[in-house]
């Protein structure tokens, strides 16, 4: 294995482009965390709007969620990056990456949250109302906290999903790991080897993330949830 790596210059390329690769990785990770943060917040709001909002709000949230989930992420990025400038709205590739992934992530998070909201049983509402809680108090203090706990496995999947899909930044040229890879490859013409390195980096990051997430989940597990 080691022989393979040296023979095919993989280690060479990795070492001599280490700085650039790491800067790409840093962008990828920052993008992932920021997108997950805002995507989760907007996702929860969308789910609440869909499940509890008045008709027009519920309708708008539903349409948003279904339209985003029904179309490819790349198409969404293209609309932001190529179509909006025709109307004088011009975003940089970096902005499009942050914006586009957040828009996409929110829709998926909303769908997971909605599923969890709906799985909270009627007895929970009955108990809360019988204590004199108002509807909004019941949703905020009883239903939502439970729904969030039910959503955690789906959310961690979404984290991995977003981490992987930030590689689409490559297509619009935001400086993520893959874009940096393309830059390196376009100078040394070692496309396969450079992308192979990128694949290994993604693999390692995803495996480490999954491991950490499992640890965190185990630590904060509440008996009776999953």
């Amino acid at each position: 294995m080691l022989e393979f790596l040296t023979e095919f210059m993989i280690i060479d390329i990795f070492v001599s482009n280490f700085g650039r690769l790491m800067s790409g990785l840093r962008f990828t990770l920052t993008l992932t965390f920021v997108v997950m943060f805002f995507g989760t917040i907007f996702g929860v709001l969308l789910a609440l709007g869909r499940s509890y909002g008045i008709k027009p709000i519920s309708w708008v949230c539903t349409a948003y969620i279904e339209l985003i989930r029904g179309t490819p992420m790349l198409a969404q990025l293209f609309i932001l990056y190529f179509a909006l400038p025709a109307y004088g709205i011009r975003f940089s590739a970096v902005t499009v990456a942050y914006l586009g992934f957040t828009i996409n992530c929110a829709a998926y998070q909303a769908e997971y949250t909605r599923g969890s909201l709906e799985s909270v049983g009627a007895d929970q509402y009955k108990s809360a109302y019988s204590l004199g809680m108002k509807r909004w108090q019941t949703i905020l203090f009883v239903v939502l906290p439970q729904a969030i706990r039910w959503s955690i496995p789906a959310w961690t999947n979404e984290f991995i999903y977003i981490l992987k899909y930030t590689s689409l930044a490559y297509i619009i040229g935001a400086p993520d790991l893959m874009t940096q890879g393309k830059f390196i490859a376009s100078r040394n013409y070692q496309f396969f080897r450079v992308y192979f390195i990128a694949a290994i980096i993604y693999l390692v990051i995803v495996l480490i993330s999954t491991w950490i997430i499992d640890k965190i989940e185990a630590k904060f597990k509440i008996p009776g949830f999953g």
């Binding site: 108990s127 004199g132 809680m133 009883v142």
Partner: peptide, 29 residues
């Protein structure tokens, strides 16, 4: 909601809040 505070209600299925400890269940209201 004020009237309901004056009336305690206990039913067959318990209706405890699953995400809260026994203590927090009692404290929430």
């Amino acid at each position: 909601n004020e009237v309901r505070q004056e009336i305690g209600y206990v039913f067959q299925g318990f209706g405890l809040f699953h995400h809260l400890t026994a203590l927090k269940n009692v404290m929430l209201g």
